[in-house]
Nucleic acid binder design. Sequence first.
DNA 1: CCGGTCAATACAAACGTTTGGATTTTTGCT
DNA 2: AGCAAAAATCCAAACGTTTGTATTGACCGG
Lengths: 350, 350
Amino acid sequence: MQKRVGLKTLALKLGMDVSTVSRALRDDPRVKEATRRAVRELADELDYRPNAAARALRMGKSGRVAVLLSPPQQRFASPIFLELLSTLDQHLRDAGLSLAVFAARERAEEVDIVRQIVDERLADAIILGRTRKADPRVALLLESGMPFVTFGQTDWQDRHPLVEIDYAEAGRLAIRALHASASGPIDVLAAPEGLNFADNYVAGACAEAARLGLPEPTLHRVEMTEQAGEDVARKILAPNPRRPAFACIQDSLSFGVYRVAAAAGLIVGRDLTVFGGQNFPGSEHTAPPLSTFSTEDSHVAELLSKVMLRRLAVDGTPADGTFEHHEIAPKLLLRQSHRLIERAPLTRTG
Amino acid sequence: MQKRVGLKTLALKLGMDVSTVSRALRDDPRVKEATRRAVRELADELDYRPNAAARALRMGKSGRVAVLLSPPQQRFASPIFLELLSTLDQHLRDAGLSLAVFAARERAEEVDIVRQIVDERLADAIILGRTRKADPRVALLLESGMPFVTFGQTDWQDRHPLVEIDYAEAGRLAIRALHASASGPIDVLAAPEGLNFADNYVAGACAEAARLGLPEPTLHRVEMTEQAGEDVARKILAPNPRRPAFACIQDSLSFGVYRVAAAAGLIVGRDLTVFGGQNFPGSEHTAPPLSTFSTEDSHVAELLSKVMLRRLAVDGTPADGTFEHHEIAPKLLLRQSHRLIERAPLTRTG
DNA sequence: CCGGTCAATACAAACGTTTGGATTTTTGCT
DNA sequence: AGCAAAAATCCAAACGTTTGTATTGACCGG
């Protein structure tokens, strides 16, 4: 409840002007070493902290970085995001910044939120994912001049830094894994059209199928939810006597497939095969364990943080006119769901 | 790149003073209806947005609510947090507020972060979880006068609103479920001592065991990670011929148990039983499906948001001197892992 | 027609910092 | 000692709002 300690308080107690105190604390060469020490000491003693709002107003920078969470963000949202937020905040705090989170309810709201962030100066920079072909959010940000980093490709990659996961490779991995032992038709379950990562996945999968001389896979562009996985699986599994293979862009979809299969008395690894994506918690313990790819969440988070910090450091246009791009390779996790095993016990691994 | 539009711009174009414009926009009764409309119109046309920093400085309120993420926040962090952040931001935005996220690396850092938030006025209010016996964060907040809501009990509950999950009931549920068919000794895997929710879980479990005339369960106070689950399971499973029952406070721990069991050639439901907690994504598809309890993430998130908003609305001490408290009952999800099934096929549910 | 009331608006200060320029103090040189 | 240059400090403005108070003009009754 005691009164807030600001520059004024310090200046008063020290018998100097606030400007001197301010400069002392910011290591301005204009203040004498001795005064600087004195100021420092008192500041520490009184536990002075600069008022964030005042500083933001004066400097025209909020000291915050925004992360835009795209819908849908339900229960099965990729666990990478929590790790991302956590890691990001830790790095930001080290740099004297803090983290703001914005969650859109629906796609249309996203661009409104970006506009709000820009106009009200709610943040100095933005990170956004789930990028699309002609992403209006990116267009808006480019126009506004606000620094940003995308998690995924955009149509204007030469104008901003970016971190992406090589989803084309993920698609190839999935087809290759399923091809090894499955004989049935391949169904690809990917996120809606227009989302770059999903388009890449589909492209990779189709290309690989062609390369292997397989028939064109059937494409299902659906939301990445367990429910959507169920819906697709129900359509495919019921009438299909030829053991189908499911390439799912995310484990959530695979879970849906598992559920429908179980309800129909079908066994993964005998009557169908499944390949997932993103290595969700628990996917290792399904019956049978889900083959999938992973992307080392902590590495992605770390990378994104560093790239953002470097982007902010140059403070303006990039030093040499070029922006950082990073492509992360998906790591293959071959467990059991991708192949047919005739009669081996499904629950034993040893 | 065009110049920012502020009150000054509007006032200039309209030929009035900024103060009038400001009042017009805030629906002050002192401005004439006609002027108000004129101002509104131009503001809309020029897409005026008040500068957040300036407003924060003037009003002494940042317009932000902070969420403190407690360590450890790894891959297996409870998925509830993402849902919480998402829901929370949506409600806050409707109320003209925004969301700030802080993630501590280690426990000791948490109180520093709280202090920073308070001193630098980084937020107007805080939400914190993983509450403890004499939680120093809570003590600090009480002293500072900053509004806050806890997710979990504290020693000073009469002085702040709170939302909690009835973990004592969760503990009872687990024991009761395991008791129904398991005959072996019970091992309780709970989070470290001092964490209120974990202490409650343990208390509930022990009480229920006593009530049922069971021998005292063995307690393991460990971090809620898959790794910790493995470590405990390895110790218990190896030398134990009597089919042990594991009551885990969180599914992450159960996953660890599953993994060790699989590696040892043991089958859950035959050689041991497991009861989890929190219903992680994927826990439904383990072999056998994990019996657990759930807490309706979206409901919790919704509740926490509403409580926070109401706390901010009263703006000061509570209206009638009393704070909102909510207890959420865990919902029992009986799948298969909690009971012994001699020879039934494990992977079929239909 | 004038003093008084009321509505509508303008003026000005304040929030806590940062920063360009003016002012004072110290230093260094002759 | 005297003076210029350099160093250290102070003064004041500014960032964009909000809000208490002063000012203006219109309208009314006497």
